[in-house]
Computed example of a mutant assay.
Amino acid sequence: MTDPASDLPPVSPVPSASAGPRTPSDVAAAWHRQAGDSVLLDGFHALKHAVRFGARVRIALTADRAGALALADELAGDVRDTLAELLTEVPHETYAALVPRPHPTAVAALAVRPSRADNLRRLAHTPRTAPVVVLDNPRNLGNAGAVIRLAAGFGATGVVTTGTLDPWHPTVVRGGAGLHFATAVERLTVEELPSGPVFALDPEGEDIRSLELPDDALLAFGSERSGLSAELRARADHLVALPMRPQVSSYNLATSVAMTLYHWSATSGSPSSATGRATGGAPGGAPV
């Protein structure tokens, strides 16, 4: 499948960290200076994905450099050399003091958030060759992160949230495993949504199995608690229902998005990469 932003300027390369701070105190000082406006990447896999998709990493550290590079040899050979250049080893107590929740891989990094202007340009770019996922007033940070990870895996153009939830909140980024850098992620109002037919998921809608979802669709999902907002429902061109056994209340938000994106990929589009074991991933879609 063609990249929906293939004619846009390439993402800036990851800067070299070869001249960066090397002592624990220098690393900690540099981290504190840059943490305020940076995206926190929690864990080896978040850093791996961010680097793979062109993130500009300001600083990366680990309490176990040998372990991190062993993981790179096993799971991320394509970015192993870059990770080796970026990662600075620090004592575990230094690492643990700099991150809110130490990750089992003992890796953390700070990256530059993609510019809003670039993301909006990607979302507005036409012709669109993959849908935009719209989360209407989502509430759960972890679910939002899982949706971004799904959208990146299916090659969606982007993920847009409405309402108060920040899709770049550290907990969302953690749930997305660094894949915010693989798709355009922004918060917009309903009025600001990009162009395209809106297919909104609703129990009263038409069975999705009877529909073909176009590549330029906006796939809209309400919150698990209250469903679609009146504003988003009014904007919808089609209401779509997922098959569900009677007396079952709802699916988890990420599950609903996965089912819908799979239906799109099976009937209209397709993921941008081959099925099976993803590069640097785990077999059978296991968490990475």
Rank of each mutant, 00 (worst) to 15 (best):
P4E: 04
S6V: 13
D7A: 10
L8N: 03
P9T: 06
S16W: 14
A17M: 12
G20N: 09
R22C: 12
R22Q: 14
T23N: 14
S25L: 15
S25W: 07
D26K: 15
A30E: 15
V39D: 02
L40Q: 04
D42P: 01
G43Q: 13
A46K: 03
F53I: 03
R58T: 09
A63I: 15
R65M: 11
E74T: 13
A76R: 12
G77P: 11
R80L: 11
D81T: 11
T82L: 15
E85S: 08
E85I: 03
L86W: 14
L87A: 10
P91D: 15
P91A: 03
H92G: 09
A96L: 10
V99S: 07
V99Q: 14
P100M: 08
P100W: 09
T105E: 15
A106H: 13
A106D: 15
V112Y: 03
P114C: 14
S115W: 04
R116Q: 06
R116D: 14
L120Q: 11
T126S: 13
T126R: 13
A130T: 01
P131I: 02
P131Y: 02
V132D: 02
V134D: 08
N137G: 03
G142Q: 07
G142S: 05
G142L: 12
N143Y: 01
A144G: 03
V147E: 04
V147L: 06
R149G: 05
L150G: 08
A151D: 07
A152W: 00
A152H: 01
A152K: 00
F154L: 01
G155M: 00
G158Q: 01
V159N: 00
V160Q: 11
T162G: 06
G163Q: 05
L165K: 12
H169M: 04
G175Y: 12
L179R: 15
H180G: 10
H180M: 11
A182G: 15
A184H: 07
V190P: 11
E191C: 02
E192A: 11
E192F: 14
L193V: 05
P197D: 15
L201W: 01
G205W: 09
E206M: 07
D207E: 08
R209W: 01
S210K: 12
P214G: 15
P214L: 05
D215A: 13
L218Y: 00
L218A: 02
F221N: 03
F221K: 12
G222S: 05
S223V: 11
G227D: 04
A234T: 09
R235Q: 09
H238E: 10
H238C: 03
H238M: 08
P243T: 02
M244A: 14
Q247S: 05
S249M: 02
Y251N: 00
N252C: 01
A254Q: 02
S256R: 01
S256A: 07
L261A: 01
W264C: 00
S268A: 06
S270C: 11
P271A: 05
A274P: 00
G276K: 11
A278L: 12
G280N: 13
A282R: 09
G285C: 10
A286W: 11
V288C: 00
